[in-house]
Amino acid sequence: MHILIADDHELLRDVLRSYLEAEGGFMVETVADLPQTLDRIAAAAAPFDLVVLDYGMPGMDGYRGLEQTIAQNAGRPVALMSGLAPPGVAEKVLSVGAAGYLPKTLPARSLVNAIRFMAAGEVYMPLDLHRPSGAVETPPSGLSPRELEVLAGLCAGHANKEIARQLNLREPTIKLHVKTICRKLDAKNRTHAAMIARERGLC
């Protein structure tokens, strides 16, 4: 996976690149601001599998830099990262078509899993940011307690293997639950199911 990390803190860039490359399967480049980000994407032979942007780095201008980068990266995923969640970040990130939001407080293992998840085309958002302020709880649309547990994993951006480990179930069982959840929520895929769940206050 070809990843571009954009952050104005050199130490964070170096630590994140070192950790990802040590995990294997990642080729990581880093830049320090938005102009460098856009230039590097333009110069690349192919779009990056994932671009991760620091919300507060020079040139970002709030969410404008996120939107510019999404347009520049030819439809490949772009995610936002920050030490503090800006107000309304979940709704804004999803509305502009970003791949998700990464808090800098995320444990290293979870960060790697989230990056893999987003590079594969899925959406990642921390569980505590899923429900918009003022969201009204609605009935669970016929979902069983176990299906709601699996749905929470989808909303958290976890892969089937990770959900299976957390629930002490086999991965094929999780796949079946995901299919059932999609059918009950009339969702096209797992990402769509998570979006519907957030809208209905199910996770």
Rank of each mutant, 00 (worst) to 15 (best):
V15I: 14
M60E: 00
A42D: 02
E23M: 14
E23I: 15
A44T: 00
A43E: 03
V15G: 10
G56P: 06
F48I: 10
A45M: 03
M60C: 01
A46E: 03
V51M: 01
T37N: 01
M57R: 14
A45N: 00
R13G: 02
G62N: 03
P47N: 09
D14G: 04
L50M: 11
A44N: 08
P35H: 14
L53V: 08
L34C: 09
D54G: 04
A42W: 00
T37F: 07
R13D: 05
G56L: 13
V52S: 05
R64H: 11
F26G: 01
V31K: 07
D39S: 11
L53R: 05
Q36G: 00
L34N: 09
G56Y: 12
T37P: 02
Y63Q: 12
V28S: 03
D39A: 11
A46M: 12
L50G: 12
P58H: 12
R13Y: 01
G25S: 11
G56E: 09
P47S: 12
R40Y: 04
E29V: 13
Y19K: 13
E21P: 10
G24W: 14
R40D: 02
D14P: 01
A43G: 05
L38T: 04
G59Q: 05
R13S: 03
R17G: 12
A32Y: 08
T37C: 08
V51R: 06
D54L: 10
A22C: 12
Y63V: 13
E23P: 11
T37L: 00
V15Y: 10
R13L: 03
E29I: 14
V28F: 00
L16S: 11
Y55P: 10
E21L: 06
F26D: 07
Q36C: 07
V51T: 01
A42K: 08
R40W: 01
A43S: 02
G56A: 15
A46H: 04
G65K: 15
V15A: 12
D33G: 01
V31E: 10
D39G: 04
L16A: 08
F48A: 09
F48W: 07
P47I: 12
A46R: 03
L38S: 02
G25L: 15
V15Q: 11
D49V: 07
E21M: 09
D33P: 00
V15S: 10
L53H: 08
R64G: 11
V31C: 02
T37H: 03
A43I: 03
R40A: 00
P35C: 13
D54Y: 01
L34W: 11
G59R: 05
D49R: 04
P47F: 08
D49F: 03
D54T: 06
